[in-house]
C-alpha cells in the first residue's frame, strides 16, 4: 500500500500535467507565484524574465514584482499558445498558462538565496576581487565564499533543468507534441521570447 502511494505521489510530481485537473494546476501555480512574490519583498533581486533573475541594490516594491511576474508569464504563455495552436488546433490557453506557471516554480527558489541580499554580499566582493586583481595567482578568495558560490551555481543548473523538464512535459501534454522539428521550434521560441521582457522591463519601470 505504501509503495502504491509512493508511486502515485511520484507520478503527481513527475507528470503533474497528466494527473492534475486544470483548476488544481492553476491554483498551485498562482498561489506559489504569490508566496514567492511576497518572499521577494525581502530579497534584493528582480526576475526580469522567466530565465533571468538580477541582483539589485535595493529591495523591489510589490508592484515591480507582480508586474515582472505577470508580463513574463503572459508573454511566454501567449507565444507558446500561438505555437501550440499551430501544432494542434485543439490546444487550450489554460493548459499553456498552467504549463508556464508550474514550470516557473523551480526558478522561484533562487529568490530565497537573495533574501536580505545574502547572495549579493557573497558575489559582489568576489567579482570585485577578480576584476581588480591583475595577476590570477594573487587572487585570494575565502574558501567559504567559494563553496557557497559553487553550490549556488550547481543549484541554479538543477533548477533550470527542472524548468526545462516541466515546460516540455506541460507543452507536450497540452499540444500532443510529437515531431522533432516542432520540439526544436519550441526550444528556440522559449529562448527568444525570454529575451523580450529583459529588454522591456528594465526600461519600462
Amino acid at each position: 500500500m505504501n509503495n502504491l502511494n509512493q508511486t502515485i505521489m511520484i507520478k503527481f510530481i513527475t507528470k503533474p500535467f497528466e494527473k492534475f485537473q486544470e483548476k488544481q494546476l492553476l491554483l498551485i501555480g498562482i498561489s506559489t507565484a504569490l508566496v514567492f512574490s511576497l518572499l521577494q519583498l525581502l530579497s534584493k533581486c528582480r526576475q526580469i524574465a522567466i530565465l533571468k533573475t538580477v541582483e539589485t541594490t535595493e529591495y523591489p516594491n510589490f508592484f515591480q514584482i507582480i508586474a515582472d511576474n505577470i508580463i513574463s508569464t503572459l508573454l511566454m504563455s501567449l507565444v507558446l499558445f500561438a505555437l501550440g495552436k499551430y501544432i494542434n488546433s485543439k490546444t487550450r490557453f489554460i493548459d499553456i498558462l498552467n504549463t508556464v506557471l508550474i514550470a516557473r516554480i523551480p526558478l522561484y527558489i533562487p529568490i530565497l538565496f537573495s533574501i536580505n541580499g545574502y547572495m549579493n554580499n557573497i558575489t559582489e566582493p568576489l567579482i570585485e576581487k577578480i576584476t581588480n586583481t591583475s595577476e590570477f595567482t594573487n587572487l585570494s578568495i575565502p574558501l567559504m565564499s567559494l563553496i557557497v558560490f559553487t553550490i549556488f551555481g550547481l543549484l541554479i543548473v538543477l533548477f533550470l533543468i527542472g524548468f526545462g523538464y516541466y515546460i516540455y512535459q506541460g507543452f507536450k501534454t497540452a499540444t500532443h507534441l510529437k515531431k522533432t522539428s516542432q520540439i526544436i521550434l519550441f526550444i528556440l521560441l522559449i529562448l527568444i521570447t525570454d529575451i523580450i521582457p529583459t529588454r522591456l522591463l528594465t526600461t519600462l519601470y
Binding site: F17, E18, F20, Q21, K90, R92, H176
Partner: peptide, 17 residues
C-alpha cells in the same frame, strides 16, 4: 472522462486523438 479516470483533460483528448 477526465474526472472519472483521475487524469487531466488534455491527456484524455490526446489518447482519443
Amino acid at each position: 472522462m477526465a474526472q472519472q479516470m483521475n487524469i487531466s483533460y488534455p491527456t484524455v483528448r490526446n489518447k482519443l486523438d
